[in-house]
Design a protein around this nucleic acid. Structure first.
Lengths: 347, 347
DNA sequence: AATAAAAATGCAAACGTTTTCATTTTGGTT
DNA sequence: AACCAAAATGAAAACGTTTGCATTTTTATT
């Protein structure tokens, strides 16, 4: 075993501060938890002593008592991707606002890895955790419940989820973009979605999209449905194949990353968008508005979801958990841009 | 003051496990720190007891002793952007590999906010921290030094930096892409870089780029140098202005995000790339390879930087800090793709 | 089989805070 | 000036683990 004891060199503790300020450690502790509980002169002395010593509180020691660590966990499928970037950023910033910090990890769309990650975060005594999506293994959920750690599901909305959720109606999102295509006269539509087995967001979107066409009276042949990971290159390649075979008039993409790939494939093959092919995405990621043509998509208020989730989790801690489970649906915003052609004259 | 004591409901501690396994808490502790230090039968009993009770160690309590919390900090300018996504992901994954977790925060290119963040991470007793870039306020650096917390600067390389660094030679990157343009006969080149005041990476890149042209014997007029945030929309807008005025034959972009914006502006204004304008970027982000035309850029091994940084920080903990400061330069990879025209016949 | 050396285990005192309870101080009221 | 309630402070016992030291058990050696 390696000797792993870091020298305590220059790290003053609460007792050093207390000594220097001429008060008891208890008072210093109180001061840091609520400055107004000590009298102004005392306050001043403690402030000065702490500053002179360069004191930094040890939240781990304090977490041992009040059972709050001041860190909140966030588990996403991936960070290496535009999909959750805005949400993660907003979540983190909002947490900073509450004097909390974010512990984040990615499971790479592997729900099984999620259990190990949850365990690891629990060991760090997180005060709450946000999970992307509604599908989760029971094991981590139980571990969290057993310890009364607030959990919240984000990104996808469901009226009936067992745990609180803040998210968008992904079914609706899929329906929205597909309806847009149908309204504009498209009838030969192709669908590219992510694997739906372990991804409830993609599942809901796909269901919504297909529902839109069936409820318009038509149906979707199997050869118009494709699966593709959230990866520009893969999408571009797949789209190239689709374009060279029997070309549809429009394609619905499971998210904007796929749309980007499809658009690039069109540019490569000199297929005019929207003239020869219309494209819609879901998400409205960075860049979608600025591509040429601009991508018609539906905006998920990612920052809002992140901020709300942060607030909710902090709130559950402060007001005393649990609140009754809530289900918050955020607004979808359809963004009509240039990537869709209108085959049907305006009425 | 609100009452903030979470019920200890169902959270067994090391002593409960010990009792059930019929050993002392000390043995259980030892088992979790190094399973092979207890004899097989004992080991088995502890494992079973822990499993039955659903025990999860409390790293905060253990951090009070050995002074290691198992979390490592990472401060980036932004997460809401493609720039650092791959690096962050690799850093985090590599940390997981070492049974550590990542505490991440963004300062939004505001070095002053960095001090508050460092403090906040220090309160959480991080075992090490990675900072992007070489420019940092002295205050946080002192706080870290005083507590013997390993720091490492990532992304930018310097042979002489005071703190260890792992990064790319950004000057070289700027020079590389500009040289490529010059070699291909471009003489009227425009430069778009991020604000260099608080961003040493951008500063180095810009210096490298300008150096390339001066050392080729020409010079860069002021009206060919622009500043632009790392934002596709802003870059697109700026590029549109540039394209409509006195158009250069090529543009060097401070990073790929800017390149993307410039390319979209060209597509919007029907300016042929690379026919009428050549574009080079720096970074080789997601999507750069798949755009049409593919973006000529220089690949920074972001994942490698992230993984190396994680390894280094963990290593500093395990082998006993400090190692003598090291400076690790990662390879740049020039990616010639379609966005640059050749004005000069091949020799 | 006896013994010495080595390995495994237990005991109890830490680690740096918070918090309960008791005590002192303050400030307002007669 | 004396008194009382309220506010501020202090003393000491926690929190859940690790670890130095002492003790027991195992293993190797004779």
């Amino acid at each position: 075993m390696t000797k792993r004891t870091r020298s305590r060199k220059g790290a003053p503790g609460i007792v050093e501060v207390a000594a220097r300020a001429g008060v008891s450690p208890a008072t210093v502790s109180r001061f840091f938890n609520d400055p107004d509980v000590v009298r102004p002169p005392t306050k001043k002395r403690i402030e000065q002593a702490a500053a002179e010593l360069g004191y930094i509180r040890d939240r781990m020691a304090s977490a041992m008592h009040n059972r709050f660590s001041g860190t909140i966990g966030l588990i996403v499928p991936t960070i290496d991707n535009a999909i959750f970037a805005e949400m993660v950023d907003a979540f983190s910033s909002q947490l900073l606002t509450h004097d909390r910090t974010m512990l984040i990890a990615a499971h790479g769309y592997d729900l099984q890895r999620e259990v190990g990650i949850v365990r690891s975060l629990l060991e760090r005594r997180i005060d709450g955790i946000a999970l992307v999506g509604l599908d989760h293994d029971a094991v981590p959920l139980n571990m969290l419940a057993q310890r009364d750690v607030p959990v919240i599901s984000i990104w996808n909305f469901s009226e009936t989820s067992a745990i609180p959720c803040i998210g968008a109606d992904n079914f609706e999102a899929g329906r929205l973009v597909t309806d847009h295509l149908i309204e504009r006269g498209h009838s030969d539509i192709c669908f590219i979605f992510a694997e739906t087995e372990t991804n409830d967001r993609a599942r809901a979107r796909k269901a919504g999209a297909l529902h839109a066409v069936t409820s318009s009276g038509s149906s979707v042949p199997d050869h118009r449905i494709f699966t593709c990971p959230y990866n520009i290159g893969a999408a571009k390649e797949l789209a190239a194949q689709i374009l060279e075979a029997d070309r549809p008039s429009a394609v619905v993409c499971g998210n904007d990353v796929i749309s980007h790939g499809v658009l690039y494939a069109c540019q490569k093959l000199k297929v005019d968008v929207p003239g020869a092919l219309s494209i819609v995405g879901i998400g409205d990621f960075r860049g979608s508005a600025d591509m040429e043509p601009g991508l018609t998509t539906v905006r998920l208020p990612a920052r809002q979801i992140g901020a709300l989730a942060a607030d909710a989790l902090v709130g559950m801690n402060e007001t005393g958990f649990p609140p009754r489970p809530f289900h918050l649906k955020v607004e979808l915003n359809f963004m009509a841009r240039g990537s869709v052609a209108n085959f049907r004259p305006r009425l």
